[in-house]
Design a protein around this nucleic acid. Structure first.
Lengths: 125, 125
DNA sequence: GGGCTACCCGTAGGTCCGTACGGGTATGGG
DNA sequence: CCCATACCCGTACGGACCTACGGGTAGCCC
């Protein structure tokens, strides 16, 4: 059954309450786009690394993450496109850092909190 | 160039610092698995709805999200498998709610904070 | 008890994402 | 002035994810 006749709003009150306060499609899309960016091992580690040390170039970043330069370069491209990281070019080396407009609550509450709960979480699958 | 000879640790100090405090592969995998679960419009909205009202059955949930039952059922399956939601069966109706073991910091700091910043965020692409 | 309802599950298909590879550009050293 | 380096970019491949569909099971109404 794919699309019922809506024969059963079992709890119309709660449904209405949820519908009212639920974020809209557009807000959800924005939110999930940010989360999707963080939901990748390489990108997440890049953000963590840049949160600890203020600046790193691509080569050193790959070295710190034990990843090849392709993966790091691709990750940085997406993060840069999304405006989450900024780059500074000095000579032939490009240094990356967290963007100034990087969402502060996301950095404070999520980025570091998630590390903590990742350690604390017993299992989730 | 995919794998250089590591001829340039430009900032060995920062690289070492990052390497030391960076979360390991396994921690990162756990973290990204949780984030991936939230990085889907349907699942995110399901979690938001369940955070507002304590319980909802599948049909009403689909009704509240303006989604068909297939999508909601699939979303709930994954969330259930990950242990993020629990279900209670009353008669032929199955009520879902956030699991007791649902990471509290994630709920308090991320789930709701992200909604706020989703509204506040001007744009990110 | 028969039939309908609410929901679960396995399968097939389309689509998007991440990785690997090759070439290109700008900078700095000899 | 020429070559090596650090990095960016476009393309092709493989895989994972989400959606859609059909069948199946458990519980309520008549």
């Amino acid at each position: 059954m794919t699309e019922p006749d809506h024969a059963h709003p079992v709890d119309p009150e709660r449904v209405a309450h949820a519908r009212t306060r639920l974020p809209g499609r557009e807000e959800t899309a924005q939110l999930t786009s940010v989360l999707s960016l963080m939901a990748d091992p390489t990108r997440a580690r890049v953000l963590f690394a840049l949160d600890m040390v203020e600046e790193l170039c691509v080569g050193d970043l790959a070295l710190a993450l034990d990843a090849n330069e392709d993966a790091v370069g691709y990750a940085l491209r997406l993060l840069r496109t999304a405006g989450l990281v900024a780059n500074r070019k000095q000579g032939r080396v490009v240094y990356y850092r967290l963007a100034e407009g990087f969402p502060a609550p996301l950095r404070d509450h999520c980025l570091r909190q998630l590390v903590v709960l990742a350690n604390a979480a017993p299992e989730d699958d």
